[in-house]
Computed example of a mutant assay.
Amino acid sequence: MKELIEIGKSILIAIIAAFLIITFIFETVSVDGHSMDPTLSNGDRLIVEKVSYYFRAPKPGDIVVIKYPANPKEKFIKRVIGVGGDRIKVENGKLYVNDVVKNEPYILETMTSDFNEVTVPQNTVFVMGDNRNNSRDSRFPDVGFVNYKMVVGRAALRIYPFSRMGRLSTFQN
């Protein structure tokens, strides 16, 4: 009987530890869709770290997992384009942040539609997928500006497929 109690305690401790790790430190997510092509592919498995955003805000270039504002049970993976105070627009296929054209070698193709200038409110981020012509992101009213509270964490590492395993780097210019 004593052994069963000890096993039960060990299982309970393991469950609590797993819950705390997933809630506060990291979790794994699977890419579902093509909005981040070519950087991330459908079916990629990622480790999302949550610790850094306890100490700093997301910054442009970070690849983040966010809760979809229209349905917080759903998660999106996007790239941070702008933060509070930044002015964002798309004109003639080019992304402008604070009137500066951004060099974006990671995007799949040139954007086919314009987006009127907006100013990102404080404590929010403006996100876009790397496959700009096939991405539901901050350009759409159901996503819009993403409050920091809706940012789950930073996609830090691809763990599958094994042939593409490695750290996901941010790109800023």
Rank of each mutant, 00 (worst) to 15 (best):
I47Y: 05
Y53N: 02
M111E: 15
S52V: 10
D114R: 13
V151N: 02
M150H: 07
R158H: 07
V127N: 00
G82Q: 05
V65T: 06
G85F: 01
I66V: 06
V97K: 10
V97Y: 03
D142H: 08
V48H: 03
R154T: 05
T119I: 12
V146W: 00
R87C: 11
N147R: 12
A57H: 11
M128H: 03
A155G: 05
L46D: 08
L157P: 12
N134W: 12
N116C: 10
L108I: 06
F140Q: 13
D99V: 09
N131S: 04
E104P: 10
N147I: 13
E109M: 10
N42T: 06
M111P: 14
K89P: 11
K75I: 08
K89A: 07
E117I: 08
T39Q: 13
K102D: 07
L46T: 08
K149R: 12
E109K: 14
N92A: 13
R139A: 01
D142R: 06
G129S: 04
D86N: 08
S113V: 15
L157Y: 15
K89T: 06
A57R: 12
D130G: 06
D86L: 02
K67R: 14
D114E: 15
S52H: 09
V48K: 04
F140N: 13
D137I: 05
G129A: 08
A155H: 04
V83L: 04
N147K: 11
V152G: 06
S135F: 01
K73L: 09
S41V: 09
V48I: 08
R139F: 00
R136V: 10
E117L: 08
G84Y: 05
G61C: 02
A57G: 08
Y106M: 13
K67Y: 09
Y53C: 03
R45M: 15
V51Y: 09
S41Q: 12
S52K: 11
R87P: 10
N71C: 08
G93K: 07
R79H: 04
E74C: 08
A155Y: 04
L40N: 05
G93R: 12
F76C: 07
P38D: 10
N131I: 05
D137T: 04
R136M: 09
I66T: 02
K75C: 07
F115D: 02
K94A: 10
R56I: 15
I47Q: 04
N116H: 14
K78R: 01
G144T: 01
P121T: 03
V51W: 10
Y106A: 08
A57Q: 10
T124R: 03
V51K: 13
D137F: 00
M111W: 15
V100G: 08
P58W: 00
E104D: 15
V125E: 00
G153N: 06
K50E: 06
D142K: 10
R87H: 14
P69S: 12
V127S: 01
D137N: 03
